[in-house]
Design a protein around this nucleic acid. Sequence first.
DNA 1: CGGCATCCAGCCGGATACTG
DNA 2: CAGTATCCGGCTGGATGCCG
Lengths: 126, 126
Amino acid sequence: MQKKEEKNSIIEICPVRNVIARFGNKWAFLIILILNENKIVRFSELCRMIPDISSRVLSGTLRTLEADNLISRKVYPVVPPKVEYQLTEIGLSLVPLINMLTEWAQTNMKKIIAHREQFETNSNAE
Amino acid sequence: MQKKEEKNSIIEICPVRNVIARFGNKWAFLIILILNENKIVRFSELCRMIPDISSRVLSGTLRTLEADNLISRKVYPVVPPKVEYQLTEIGLSLVPLINMLTEWAQTNMKKIIAHREQFETNSNAE
DNA sequence: CGGCATCCAGCCGGATACTG
DNA sequence: CAGTATCCGGCTGGATGCCG
């Protein structure tokens, strides 16, 4: 199961990245933001709010976030099934950071993308 | 070159993630932090400071960061070659955010990992 | 020294189909 | 409704070797 036990340089062990890497995936930030705005959201609502995500990936992402206790999952034993997701306290405490990242990105976006395009043009031209 | 032109849902276009995704990779954060502490670092120094990274991946990551104007690359036309990397202003402006993320991770790390392990145990047991 | 070329394994995310 | 099962393509990251 865990085979990276050997590669224990200071950096590979570094638990910070271990933690951060979990929501560095494609959808985690967005899901956290949506849960923050809507407080309690059902699975199918998330599906509709993020049209590009497949239910397989959505459920996987939710599972990871739940495992890390960033979101909580509540199942109602009814038919048809009903499952609600919401942020935990830890998840909530992450929201301001995500917002700051988002603001930073919005602020610097234009310059970054412009520079990126120019950089690639130069690379190709050279 | 760019074939995702069609998939232009609100989210897929979302430029914020487009920007953030670039340093959501395995080494970017760490490199930015190292450059912040050492101001000016040569390629081989980075190699030594991050023993787990291959030179191929390191140079790729540096290139991406340079393309986005987060770091600058200065080549000295000497033999043997000498290349120095340092943060740009934009890169520098990102440092506080990374530090906050790091602090957040350090604060919540233990709880998160504990919860994760318990979660996985439950999943296997059930 | 600072890369790039090549090759390759593993994982991530997407499409589709099916189920309690 | 809320997933799981299966399959699969592509990208990321790692190992190695070469080159100006």
